[in-house]
Design a protein around this nucleic acid. Sequence first.
DNA 1: GGACGATAGTTGTTTAGACGAATATATTAG
DNA 2: CTAATATATTCGTCTAAACAACTATCGTCC
Lengths: 158, 158
Amino acid sequence: MADQTIQSARRFDSLEQEAYLSLWRTYDRLKSIEEAFFQKWNLTPQQYNVLRILLGSESPLPTLAIATKLVSRAPDITRMLDKLEQEKWIARSRSEEDRRAVMVSITAEGRKRVSDMSDSLEEMHREQLGHLGAKDLRSLVDLLAKVRQPFEPPGSSW
Amino acid sequence: MADQTIQSARRFDSLEQEAYLSLWRTYDRLKSIEEAFFQKWNLTPQQYNVLRILLGSESPLPTLAIATKLVSRAPDITRMLDKLEQEKWIARSRSEEDRRAVMVSITAEGRKRVSDMSDSLEEMHREQLGHLGAKDLRSLVDLLAKVRQPFEPPGSSW
DNA sequence: GGACGATAGTTGTTTAGACGAATATATTAG
DNA sequence: CTAATATATTCGTCTAAACAACTATCGTCC
C-alpha cells in the first residue's frame, strides 16, 4: 500500500510504449548535440546529408532521387537545394535526355566543405556515443534494424 | 576490383556514426506512424504528452514545470497550451501565492479525450514495435537508457 | 500526331518551431 | 522601503516543415 515510487507520474502502459518513448527521448538528446555541431558549420543535418549522398554518387542525381536516399523524408527538397546552390556547394542543370529532370551534382567547394568537417564530425559522433563499447553499439545497431525493418520499402538500402 | 556492393554509397565512417544514423532513421520511421495516428485525433504527440503529464499530476502544474517533463523540449509552451485550452482540454489560472505563475490543469473533457484514445494508442504502439519480442524490447530499452544517460540532467526521471 | 494520364520539379500558403525582447511579479541587498 | 536582480510567462519575428496546387515534359494509345 505504501511505496509508490516517486515518479509514479511516469508509468508506461506497455513495453512497446516504453521502448518508443525511450527511442524518442534518446534521439532527442543526441540530436541536440548534432544540431549544435552543424550550426557551427552553418548547415543543417539534412543539408549535410545531401552533400554526402552526392559525394557518394559517381554521377549527378536527379532531385527526387536524392529525396529517397535521405535519412528522414524532406518534402521540400527544392528549397533545400536552393540554399546549397546559393552557397555554391552544389550545381544544378536540366537533363538533356529527360527535360523534366534536374540533375544535381556536388561542386569542388562542396567536396571541400565535407572533407573539412570530417574530423570534427567524427569527434562529435564519439561525443554522442563513444561511452558505449563496440559490443553495445553493435547490438544497438542490430536491434534498431530489426525495429524498422517492416517499415522500410523493399529496395531501401536501410 | 569487381564486387563493389550495390550500395557503396552508404558506408559509415565509424560505428558511432552508424549507430546514430540508425537511431535517426528508426525514430523517423516510427514517428511517421505515430504522427498519422495522432492526426486522426486532431492533436500532436507533444500535445498528448502534455495531457498525460497533467493527468499524472495530482495538482495543477505551472507552465514551465510541464516543459521540463516533456520528451523533447518545447520552447513554445505558451502557444501549445493555448491550443489545448481552445479545445477545452486544459484550464489555466494565475496562481495566488506567486502571481507570476500560471497553473495548468486538465479538464474533464481532457481526461475523456485521453481515455478515449487509450485503446487505439496501445494498438498503435503494437504496430510500431509488436514484431519484437519482450526480450529484444527490454534490451533495446536498456541500451537506449545507457546511450542517453550522460546527457540527462541529474534529477530528470529519464 | 493529338489526347491522356503519369512523372519531375516548383511555387504558394498555412502552421509549427527557434530565438530574443518585453512584461509582470517576486526576492534580496542595503 | 527602494533599487537591483531574478523568475515566470508571453509576444514578435524569422526560419523551416507540411500540404496542395501548378507547370512542363514524357510515354503511350488510338
